[in-house]
């Protein structure tokens, strides 16, 4: 479904990787590994379409991934380094906004459930500025949880700042998505084995 061929990434004068090829089908997990600065985030951002490849091509259902490919974007959910939360808003308001922006309908009950899953039910009416790093991450993950209709999840270091229980819940979330025929690409430094129908590994060496 997602085809990456002869992908090359250069940041400034530095070549991060070249000749990267892989194919992701439904149910496949892509694990991107590598040291700091080896281009993991760049690869994920390229898959999002933020970064233009120096060479090679990324295509989704046979169509090139670029700014004009709205069909691809409507099947994508992305969790970046930043949590994409507004400090001024409450977790509930942040989630509601994010879902409306990407055209995902969600009832208030589902939003409440997602916040419950994130362990933030009591804090749903507090501004996000008062939350800890881990709690913010969990709000952001709740957004991903509410996007099961998005086929392809791109998660950049999803386990950062999470406690053990939250890491397990996140792992189960991704596993369930994959089992349901979804796809995911993620980077992590933690050894968190995620059960998946199929796993692809990409090792980047700087």
């Amino acid at each position: 479904m997602l085809e990456v061929s002869k992908l090359e990434c250069a940041r400034g004068e530095r070549l991060l990787f070249r000749d990267l090829n892989f194919v992701l089908e439904a149910g496949t997990l892509l694990e991107v590994r590598g040291a700091n600065g080896s281009g993991k985030t760049s690869l994920l951002r390229m898959l999002c379409g933020f970064l233009q490849p120096a060479a090679g091509e990324i295509s989704w259902r046979g169509k090139t991934v670029n700014a004009g490919n709205e069909e691809y974007r409507s099947e994508l959910a992305y969790l970046g380094h930043h949590n994409a939360l507004k400090d001024e808003l409450t977790p509930l308001e942040n989630l509601r906004y994010a879902l409306r922006l990407s055209g995902i309908g969600a009832t208030d009950t589902r939003l409440q459930e997602a916040l419950e899953w994130a362990g933030l039910r009591e804090r749903r009416h507090q501004s996000c500025a008062t939350l800890s790093q881990g709690q913010r991450r969990r709000v952001s993950l709740a957004r991903i949880k509410l996007s099961p209709s998005r086929r392809f999840w791109i998660l950049d270091e999803p386990f950062t700042a999470l406690d053990v229980a939250a890491v397990e819940r996140t792992r189960d979330l991704v596993a369930a998505h994959l089992a349901g025929g979804g796809m995911a690409a993620l980077t992590t430094h933690q050894e968190v084995p995620i059960p998946a129908p199929a796993t692809q590994r990409v090792e980047l060496s700087a």
Binding site: F50, N83, L101
Partner: peptide
């Protein structure tokens, strides 16, 4: 830009 919500806006299926 700083908190990442801009990225999500760019990713939204709507015309930017």
């Amino acid at each position: 830009y700083a908190d990442g919500t801009l990225e999500q806006m760019v990713l939204a299926p709507q015309p930017l």
